[in-house]
């Protein structure tokens, strides 16, 4: 985690250096020309991939009364077309391999964390945002979280099918190179979620011990308001290393990005779960023009 914080600082410094250069008349003309070229092309699809490390801290009262923490690698695939946005994020899906060693305890455990988000949003241009655009919308959000200690000697889970409201503030930075900053916020309106029963293991689990999907996706309860608190905040910096020219080379269709992600999750089930997640991600986006 320390290495990534250091990397963040370096990237911030680099961006500061880039941003700090004085734009002369020549570069202004060049930029204007680029903008004209961009206007001629229509962005059809965006494909993205992100990889990051997330510092996870959680207390799941079904799993344990003690705090678990560890660093979890996550991978995200994204697709965007007009107002539609699809995002699939997961830590490793194989529970047999330890993907998170909680380092403050004697109980090395695994955490599988996966999300599928399908969102729609509408763009507004607002005067008070200094040229930034505001996107408002919603997303269907399917979440799967499974905690496992020692081949389920202890375990817990959260599966949720949610409707979230989303907002994005995006700002195009006017410099020699194309740069953007996005601030994404989301919050759940309601969810149908499945959590372990009061006693952790009950008859339903014993009877369905060979049908993990039935355990994870049956017996849903409705959560909303203070029963489900899950603000997510993502700050992303996009940088385009090669300016648009004629939209033919691979390099000019690529964007690099760096994201900071913070999420707090509290679900007030019969045994509450609270989780803090802070992550840093690096990624690539491929732009597909018509």
């Amino acid at each position: 985690m320390k290495r990534y914080l250091l990397l963040l600082v370096i990237v911030c410094c680099v961006s500061h250096t880039l941003c700090g250069q004085t734009e002369d008349t020549k570069s202004k003309k060049k930029r204007k020309k680029n903008q004209e070229r961009i206007a001629m092309a229509i962005l059809k699809h965006r494909f993205s991939f992100k990889a990051g490390l997330f510092n996870e801290r959680l207390v799941d009262e079904t799993f344990s009364g003690i705090l678990f923490q560890g660093v979890l690698p996550k991978y995200t695939l994204g697709y965007k077309h007009k107002k539609l946005r699809i995002e699939l994020q997961s830590s490793t899906p194989n529970l047999d391999k330890t993907n998170i060693d909680f380092d403050n305890t004697f109980f090395p455990s695994t955490l599988l964390d996966a999300h599928l988000k399908i969102g729609l949003s509408k763009t507004f241009e607002l005067d008070f945002t200094y040229g930034a655009k505001l996107n408002l919308g919603g997303q269907l959000h399917s979440q799967l979280m499974v905690l496992n200690y020692d081949n389920f000697d202890s375990g817990s889970w959260l599966t949720a099918q949610r409707l979230d409201v989303t907002a994005r503030l995006e700002k195009h930075l006017r410099t020699r190179k194309e740069q953007w900053v996005h601030l994404d916020v989301s919050y759940p309106l309601f969810a149908l979620a499945s959590r372990p029963a009061y006693a952790g293991i009950d008859n339903f689990l014993v009877e369905n011990s060979d049908d993990i999907l039935k355990i994870l996706y049956s017996r849903n309860d409705f959560y909303s308001g203070i029963g489900l608190v899950n603000p997510e905040l993502t700050l992303t910096y996009f940088y385009k290393p090669v300016n648009y020219h004629d939209y033919t080379t691979f390099a000019e269709k690529l964007m690099l990005h760096l994201s900071l992600h913070y999420e707090y999750l509290y679900i007030n089930s019969v045994k509450p779960l609270s989780r803090n997640s802070f992550g840093i991600e690096l990624g690539l986006t491929y732009l597909w023009f018509k």
């Binding site: 207390v59 900053v181 905040l233 910096y237 913070y262 803090n276």
Partner: peptide, 19 residues
């Protein structure tokens, strides 16, 4: 904004242990 967000996020990382 980056730095402030980072600090804010770090400051929020607290969970209450039951034991």
């Amino acid at each position: 904004t980056f730095t402030a967000s980072l600090l804010l996020m770090m400051a929020c990382l607290k969970n209450k242990e039951l034991v």
